[in-house]
């Protein structure tokens, strides 16, 4: 579990650092909130659900927002 927490910390830092916050702030709701949730917890499926978009369509926006999915 400690290993997992360490990975999550590293991943969240990377998402926060890489994200294009100006792009994110310009998005309409609920896309803006969904992108922020993605930065916070890295859960693409949950973020897509919040956005109301299919996962692949939300993922296109994620790429434009420069939020990496960390594996």
């Amino acid at each position: 579990m400690e290993k997992f927490k360490e990975f999550e910390r590293e991943a969240r830092e990377l998402r926060e650092k890489s994200a294009d916050w100006e792009f994110i702030e310009k998005q309409p709701e609920p896309i803006k909130t969904a992108l922020k949730v993605l930065v916070e917890n890295g859960d693409l499926w949950l973020a897509a659900k919040i956005s109301g978009l299919p996962v692949d369509e939300f993922d296109e926006i994620r790429i434009k927002a420069k939020i990496p999915v960390v594996v």
């Binding site: 990975f7 590293e10 790429i63 420069k66 939020i67 990496p68 999915v69 960390v70 594996v71």
Partner: peptide, 9 residues
């Protein structure tokens, strides 16, 4: 894909 692998992995 815009996917990044962790340095540790």
């Amino acid at each position: 894909t815009g996917l990044v692998f962790s340095k540790t992995r």
